[in-house]
Simulated scan of single mutants.
Amino acid sequence: MTIIFNKIKQLRKEKGISQQALADYLGIERTSLSKIENMKYNPSARIITETSNFF
């Protein structure tokens, strides 16, 4: 799963997207996205799917 978390952060930064913008799209708090990116929280299947669709 580490690869997924690192890839989210990497893609977001490469595309110049803020954590807040992605969190808004996903319908979650920015702090939740931060926890996902820093491997402190496991995202649901919905979050993984919607993140995939976003990128």
Score class of each variant (00 low, 15 high):
30 R>N: 07
15 K>C: 04
25 Y>V: 07
55 F>K: 00
43 P>T: 00
32 S>P: 07
18 S>W: 04
1 M>Q: 06
20 Q>D: 11
47 I>G: 04
8 I>M: 00
12 R>L: 03
43 P>H: 01
7 K>G: 03
33 L>M: 06
34 S>V: 06
29 E>V: 02
35 K>T: 12
13 K>T: 09
30 R>D: 04
8 I>A: 01
2 T>Y: 13
50 E>K: 15
49 T>M: 07
3 I>N: 12
55 F>W: 06
55 F>T: 00
2 T>K: 15
17 I>D: 01
37 E>H: 11
7 K>A: 08
12 R>M: 04
54 F>Y: 15
25 Y>L: 10
9 K>P: 06
4 I>G: 04
48 I>T: 06
39 M>L: 15
6 N>M: 10
53 N>R: 11
50 E>R: 15
45 A>T: 11
46 R>W: 09
13 K>W: 04
12 R>W: 04
18 S>M: 00
53 N>L: 10
21 A>L: 13
46 R>E: 11
15 K>S: 10
36 I>T: 03
36 I>P: 01
22 L>K: 03
32 S>H: 14
50 E>S: 11
49 T>Y: 14
44 S>W: 00
40 K>W: 06
32 S>K: 13
49 T>K: 13
25 Y>P: 08
10 Q>Y: 15
54 F>W: 07
12 R>D: 06
33 L>P: 08
29 E>F: 10
28 I>V: 08
32 S>T: 15
11 L>C: 11
38 N>W: 09
22 L>V: 02
29 E>P: 05
